[in-house]
Write a protein that binds this DNA or RNA. Structure first.
Lengths: 179, 179
DNA sequence: CTTGAAAAAACACATTA
DNA sequence: TAATGTGTTTTTTCAAG
């Protein structure tokens, strides 16, 4: 097994770090991935071939997982967004429960720490469809209860941003952590 | 004011409905928006110019909101995902609270119905950064408490899907709704 | 909506800095 | 590692039917 195959199995090249220019590229492509390499290069201070090379590397390394069309939920008749908390008896992550990922209405499935086991993000046409999904969940062995948070308004919803906040405000009245 | 300007103000062209072919196009572009119009046309049974015309219309109408690079959170040093529930005194949606959208760590802000007022999806480098964000939230006037659900594992996370489930399983032991 | 031809990119090089 | 320059290929785009 060669190094490349190994890296693919690990699902990512630990490879080269994402540097400042890479972050700028990612920032641009998150906003609009349809621009030409000429324009991308211009925005980050690189020649078109250099920009192209960077993007290819970011895709190879897995930093760019995909380039996707972002759809307006209303255009595809899915105006109702909800977050569903699921409590289970025993270990929640069963194949039966994971089967809900077959429904295109289910956009996210996470296991979480807190007063609940799992968290789903679902987008449906109406409350009727949400009820159908919840009914399906209750039919799943091990599911003891669900709590749904129906979204009234969405004020922000965006993909993963490459930027990070360098300096966080020091929590007031708080002891300094050891590390 | 002409019709077109009016439509733009409404932020969408009510225009032509998204038909079956449009949905197929959206389905393909959600998976991979880098393909050529030739290939897109082939996959949905259209000529390249026809496919192009459809895509242009979907973008004009706002059905396709953007074409974005989907970034691996780990590549940009944001391995920690959390959902934060915020309880507020009075009406939660204040400008001060909305200011958190300036932090690139905050990906979603929703107002919800349920036992909490607002719901945030945040992605940070570590627990320290999450604490910094929470400290910032507590500093916001009106915020009475927060509850955080730290994601242990993500099993599914995908963009809005154009498909919808036609037939939901009829909820067992449930009376038939009037409508 | 299709076919077919043009214009404009993207892409793959080699060379140089 | 990136810039420049060349040529080739592909894609986009605009005709006309």
């Amino acid at each position: 097994m060669d190094a490349e195959t190994d890296d693919i199995q690990r699902n990512k090249h630990p490879a080269r770090e994402v540097d400042a220019i890479d972050r700028k590229i990612l920032g641009v492509l998150v906003e609009d991935a349809t621009i030409s390499y000429a324009e991308l290069g211009e925005r980050v201070g690189l020649s078109p071939p250099a920009a192209h090379e960077r993007v290819k590397r970011l895709k190879r390394s897995g930093a760019i997982r995909a380039t996707s069309a972002i759809i307006d939920p209303r255009a595809v008749k899915k105006p109702l967004l909800a977050f569903v908390h699921i409590d289970t008896r025993g270990w929640g992550k069963t194949p039966e429960l994971m089967a809900v990922s077959k429904f295109p209405e289910v956009e996210e499935i996470h296991t979480v720490a807190g007063d609940t086991c799992m968290l789903l993000k679902v987008r449906t046409e109406d409350t009727r469809a949400l009820e159908g999904l919840l009914a399906r969940l209750y039919d799943t062995p091990g599911v003891t209860s669900t709590r749904s948070y129906v979204v009234l308004s969405t004020y922000l919803e965006r993909p993963v941003q490459p930027e990070t906040t360098a300096e966080w405000p020091a929590p007031k009245h708080m002891a300094t952590p050891v590390y």
